[in-house]
Amino acid sequence: MARAFTPKVVTANHLLEGDVIYMTASGDWTRELRDAELLTDEADADLRLLEAQQQTAVTVGAYLADAKSGPDGRPEPTHFREEFRRTGPSNYFHGKQAEA
């Protein structure tokens, strides 16, 4: 049996800045995971990923990252790698944690 689909967000790095970006429900890009669109349907997710990959002037290396719905209904990471991507490094107060 195929593995059950788990919720995803579309994420990538920004071509110019190099930083982590996420796709919103309107198809724009945000630097905040909490503003990303949480995709619960596999076909939708695949379609959104294709859209992201076509935006080569904005994105590099777009992929679907596992996420879950947080207490406020907004996406949260399920894996520590995605937690670091949305926060920044742990040795300096740099990256997204410093920009929030």
């Binding site: 790095n13 800045e17 190099g18 930083d19 982590v20 290396g61 490094p89 740099h94 990256g95 997204k96």
Partner: peptide
Amino acid sequence: LRLMNGLYLQLHAY
């Protein structure tokens, strides 16, 4: 081309 010139794309940035 960028790799030949030492430029990676990492977790948070180039």
